[in-house]
Design a protein around this nucleic acid. Sequence first.
DNA 1: GCGCGCTACTAGCGCGCTCTAGTTCGAGTA
DNA 2: TACTCGAACTAGAGCGCGCTAGTAGCGCGC
Lengths: 335, 335
Amino acid sequence: MADVAEKAGVSRALVSIVFRNQAGAGQETRERVLRVADEIGYRPDSAARLLARGRSRTLGVMFTVQQTFHTDLITGIYPEAERLGYDVLLSGATHGRSEAKAVEALLSHRCEAVILLGPDSEPAFLDELGQRTVAVSVSRRVPRARVDFVHSAEGKGVRQAMDHLVELGHRRIVHIDGGRGPGAAERRRAYRAAMRRHGLQAEARVIPGHHTEESGIEAGRLLLAERDGGRPLPTAVLAGNDRCAMGLLMAVTRAGVEVPRDLSVVGYDDSHLSHLMPVGLTTVRQDALLMAEHAVRFAVERLEEREREPREAVLDPKLVVRGTSGPVPAGPGPA
Amino acid sequence: MADVAEKAGVSRALVSIVFRNQAGAGQETRERVLRVADEIGYRPDSAARLLARGRSRTLGVMFTVQQTFHTDLITGIYPEAERLGYDVLLSGATHGRSEAKAVEALLSHRCEAVILLGPDSEPAFLDELGQRTVAVSVSRRVPRARVDFVHSAEGKGVRQAMDHLVELGHRRIVHIDGGRGPGAAERRRAYRAAMRRHGLQAEARVIPGHHTEESGIEAGRLLLAERDGGRPLPTAVLAGNDRCAMGLLMAVTRAGVEVPRDLSVVGYDDSHLSHLMPVGLTTVRQDALLMAEHAVRFAVERLEEREREPREAVLDPKLVVRGTSGPVPAGPGPA
DNA sequence: GCGCGCTACTAGCGCGCTCTAGTTCGAGTA
DNA sequence: TACTCGAACTAGAGCGCGCTAGTAGCGCGC
């Protein structure tokens, strides 16, 4: 920085002003400073900057490396953070790297706030985190913890999906749930409620799973095995999320089941895969961009106004009907 | 820190020593300092620490948010970096966020080295980056740039896959390529060479694509449309990577093509999806963990021994035969 | 002529830590 | 006793910035 200042014939302070895009520097000088900086290859040291101003203006994002919906969210987080003048640091949780560890890394890099994508940690941990810093949880509700919360109205989404299926004449509708995954409990509950509301409680069936392709494949195998054992296939499946739906589709189409003729499948998320399929996946759309924007805004607003109470944003999901759902088979199922 | 020092009755320097776990402090004092720090809730400020010691011991990783193989790599990078005492910062490139921007973010956070996963930038940019800092490119070869390079021997992988297919009796083998994607050029070349070697140059056909599901779906549609127009389907397809293979599978199985009876499909990467499928994807395995380890080691070793020349690691890929490849159809194809 | 306000710029302190070059002190040695 | 030596500890400079308080210069009105 001193080099730049000297070479441009100004003081260090002025270089600082130019780089912070602050008023107080002439247009000509500004350009000269930037040009010299570029020549030298100078770039402000964020550590020093951070130290000097006491704020890092950095948002930490914890995500699960393999979760495709998270990548959709991240895509939305970057631009919104940039718009508000914040930097973004990513930290992934993987098999060998717990969420706590990932968060710790973010904090030790002085992130001012932490955005947790579908966290799977104990509520106590999240609450403690919320006390220590500004935290936002996306997709997972944390009852009385001091964290902001962004999610979509799972109940509404599931209801739309179920109404759609019932309208198409389906009665044997199975739900593959997402276990302890974010939003899974709410979806499961909404599924049960919808079955009841439609007078189908006798048909209700939840196959335990989680939010992965693997889980969908397993469930598919289970259903196929049952079919071979004499129990008819359900006519429709509400999957825990899109990945699960994809797994299920792979499993059943491979076995000759035709979708949606023999079986309707509805996913959840509308992750970028869903619309790619030749006959797109019918799914409940969670607007990842909007969720990301809310998460960032919540974090930033709590940061700027420290005493503010944590808030909750509930976004309306929307059923997107594509090619994997259709009317119930006319004759008896392919039992 | 000053508070801790005062309350523990020692100097700030001593506190520093204790927190760096350095020799030069008595056992008793050490414990006292730690206890006091815990009471006060003191944790060292990594920004200041970083500034003061001039080294961040942080590795930056640039990746493409949607690329599943990258997530496999990241999973391997974390533990290796931790083992060597380095921190990891992630920065994703997305639609609205160029690779240059992602790298810029890493550098301004004082990453000492940058690991680029399948970078798509101009060689000139990469070379410049390599001059400025320690850089490692994974999957993409950058001819005479000052960067380390980790990749798998694409040629060998493709050759194994092709030999496998030819052995199964295939002759009409189509390659959906990966465009400018990492490794794509090498794979394309190796495909052509293999066709030639087996005396099938007349049958060689490359369908332009890229490393996404979308691309596989498009290629699938194209092939199906051609079939409907009278041109027989190929009997086997070598996809540019697993995602592409998955897209292709979705497209063709949906249209009633049975894999591998009517069509054999071979992927590339062995990303975590491949083994999940009910009848797993036959693919060329790139050992993501091993690649990640090499990348981290290259970066760290160049960091510790600054004058060291960039190196290249070529890992042997391995064909993994699963369920999507089989003998060529007995009768005439399903034309 | 003076004060005024404005823009363009600068001096220099301090952020919280690390690190070098010390000082102190008690035990060991001749 | 007089010394050496190492372990335990400290003083204080400096890392690269941001920021506050200030100065210089200039056009303005009266």
